[in-house]
């Protein structure tokens, strides 16, 4: 009897020990995992963190001090950078960017929704060929069309204006967005649209009242992509804009590089930080819809 108890106790002790051991192993493995993830995450974020830190440094400290915490924090970079060396402040450049982004994003949303609706829901002669063309333009490298486009816009007299930068997109020129919306629409059952038609809605009303609200998550992603990509677009403005007063931010950042003899790095970095703010803000505000939009099947029937 006594022996039995001892045996059992040993067994229990053993199992308790294994349990504790398992728990400890689990804790260790989690710790290692998180440490690794945090390390890699930090590595990825380091340039951004350094950028923000350096924007508060003096110009001389940037190269002297490799760490990201400035020894004498200063706002000079921001103040001087905002003024720029041109007659315009950065406010002008932000405004220019806004003037390009606003019509471009809105135009993209409207035109792409309409075109995608047409492709996804209607049968019309030549649909296959048109759709194939759409996909083909997706595969076409951007660079290939630059020169013909430039010549076209020159003949239209649109050079040195914002028009070449947003008009093509506002007429569903971005095949990628059209394609994305078509795919999204295909996953939505047609019943709601049919119900709307029986309720007396015409094609346009169906699009506006039924399809667009159901497409909302995808449309938000489209707008967000367009916003960020336009914000970051350097080549487009570089090719088409020549007057400084029309420069958007992406070009204006370069401006401070080649007009000053000695580069004022702190100004450039400070303005880069500001240039990041709109895109990041918009992204975080719309994050929920954005993720819903790019993951398929976001809408339940």
């Amino acid at each position: 009897m006594a022996e039995e108890i001892t045996v059992r106790t040993t067994a229990e002790l053993d199992s308790a020990r294994t349990l504790a051991e398992g728990r400890r192993m689990h804790a260790i493995s989690s710790a290692v995992r998180y440490a690794l993830l945090a390390g890699v995450g930090f590595l990825m974020l380091y340039p951004l963190i350094w950028l923000i830190g350096a924007s508060f440094k003096t110009n001389s400290e940037i190269f002297a001090n490799p760490g990201f915490i400035p020894s004498e924090p200063t706002l000079n970079g921001y103040i001087d950078g905002w003024r720029t060396s041109t007659p315009y402040t950065f406010a002008t450049f932000f405004w220019n960017t806004f003037l390009i982004i606003l019509p471009k994003t809105i135009g993209t949303a409207i035109s792409c929704a309409a075109v995608a609706y047409g492709f996804a829901r209607f049968e019309f002669p030549g649909k296959r060929i048109l759709f194939a063309t759409l996909i083909a333009t997706l595969l076409l490298p951007n660079v290939v069309t630059r020169i013909p486009q430039y010549l076209l816009f020159r003949d239209l007299g649109w050079l040195d204006s914002f028009l070449p930068l947003w008009v093509p997109s506002a007429f569903a020129g971005d095949a990628f967005f059209v394609f994305m919306l078509i795919q999204f629409l295909r996953a939505i059952p047609r019943d709601m649209e049919e119900a709307a038609r029986v309720d007396g809605a015409n094609t346009l009303q169906t699009l506006i009242y039924i399809v667009v609200p159901m497409l909302a998550p995808a449309l938000i992603s489209v707008c967000l992509f367009q916003f960020i990509w336009t914000m970051n677009d350097f080549l487009g403005p570089l090719i088409y804009l020549s007057s400084v007063d029309k420069y958007p931010i992406s070009l204006a950042l370069k401006l401070s590089i080649d007009t000053t003899e000695a580069f004022q790095w702190n100004r450039i970095l400070a303005m880069s930080v500001l240039a990041l703010v709109p895109a990041l803000t918009v992204f975080f505000l719309a994050q929920k819809y954005f993720i819903e939009g790019i993951s398929t099947g976001g809408v339940k029937g």
């Binding site: 059952p189 019943d191 049919e194 119900a195 029986v198 809605a201 009242y209 809408v299 339940k300 029937g301």
Partner: peptide, 28 residues
């Protein structure tokens, strides 16, 4: 057009407009 025929239809999977409240669904 379907809306001009004086018919109304009930669908198998309800086909309610997902973004509208019941009230707006009825009133559409």
């Amino acid at each position: 057009a379907p809306g001009q025929r004086g018919v109304s239809m009930v669908f198998q999977n309800y086909a309610l407009y997902p973004h509208m409240k019941v009230r707006s669904n009825l009133a559409f």
